[in-house]
């Protein structure tokens, strides 16, 4: 077997694994049940909360990630290596551990003060956004940094000799060059946030019609042995994610990619 065929074989195997998992859902699928769930206020709330929370998380994460990633990509500063290493934290610490760390923080003096005087996070929608943001921020910075790393610094250097300040060079040269990659980073950040469960459930709990995102809804339905309900929620989650990814590819027919 040629190397080319072997690689294509592996690609198809990966596809089959995921396709098999999706197809297996149909063993417990009932269109009646799906329609009933789609019409229920509880499911609609879970969909709305998932989409809104993931979108807010994505906006906050990208607003923080773009300048942070640019700094990591372009400048040398004290502690840069440490910051760069900590970005991997959400990847090697489990989401539940991240959630536990957030809970512990809110039991320290500064955390208690924030809860009392700024905003209540534990067991609230704000907690959902906070947990998702902490879970995806590192990844968002890492993705945005990969985009900036791919753009030659020479462009900004030339722009500056032509009269642009650092900010003008960034906005007029780097950002237009990076927008496809940053858009891809936004989509991936959103997708990771919409499916986030471990940190969210630890911080926001499982309160129906309050902190119930789609992943939490799936967990709650499984816990109460509502398999058909869980399957319907999974299908809704998969459909929303695929529609978003498909629309993003329609916006950029060449394919969204991280790397400028």
């Amino acid at each position: 077997m040629s190397f080319k065929r072997l690689c294509i074989g592996f690609a198809l195997s990966v596809f089959l694994v995921y396709a098999g998992l999706i197809i297996s859902l149909y063993s417990f699928y009932s269109s009646e049940h799906l329609l009933r769930i789609l019409a229920s206020p509880r499911a609609l709330y879970a969909v709305r909360l998932s989409v809104v929370a993931a979108s807010v998380t994505m906006l906050i994460s990208m607003l923080l990630a773009i300048p942070a990633a640019y700094a990591l990509s372009r400048y040398q500063f004290a502690g840069k290596r440490l910051v760069d290493t900590l970005l991997e934290l959400p990847l090697f610490v489990s989401p539940a551990a991240l959630g536990a760390m957030i809970l512990i923080f809110f039991n320290t003096a500064p955390g208690v003060w924030i809860q009392a005087n700024v905003q209540q996070f534990i067991f609230t929608v704000y907690g959902v956004v906070l947990a998702q943001t902490i879970a995806v921020l590192g990844v968002a910075v890492r993705l945005a940094k990969a985009v900036f790393d791919e753009i030659p610094r020479r462009y900004e250097a030339v722009a500056r000799t032509l009269g642009a300040s650092r900010l003008q060079a960034f906005t007029s040269i780097t950002l237009p060059h990076a927008y496809r990659g940053l858009f891809a980073a936004m989509v991936l950040t959103w997708a990771k946030a919409v499916g986030e469960f471990g940190a969210t459930v630890t911080v926001a709990g499982t309160i129906a019609m309050r902190t119930e995102t789609l992943p939490i809804s799936i967990y709650m339905r499984l816990a109460s042995a509502d398999i058909e309900g869980a399957v319907s929620s999974i299908l809704i989650l998969i459909t929303i994610s695929l529609v978003v990814l498909y629309l993003s590819r329609l916006l950029f027919p060449g394919g969204t990619y991280v790397g400028g």
Binding site: R154, A157, A159, R160, T161, L162, S165, H177
Partner: peptide, 20 residues
């Protein structure tokens, strides 16, 4: 002095024409 105030034109090896 910052580059934008030096009033020097710079042509690098790869020319760095802005592709966008």
């Amino acid at each position: 002095t910052v580059p934008e105030k030096r009033n020097m034109a710079y042509l690098p090896q790869d020319l760095a024409l802005f592709p966008t």
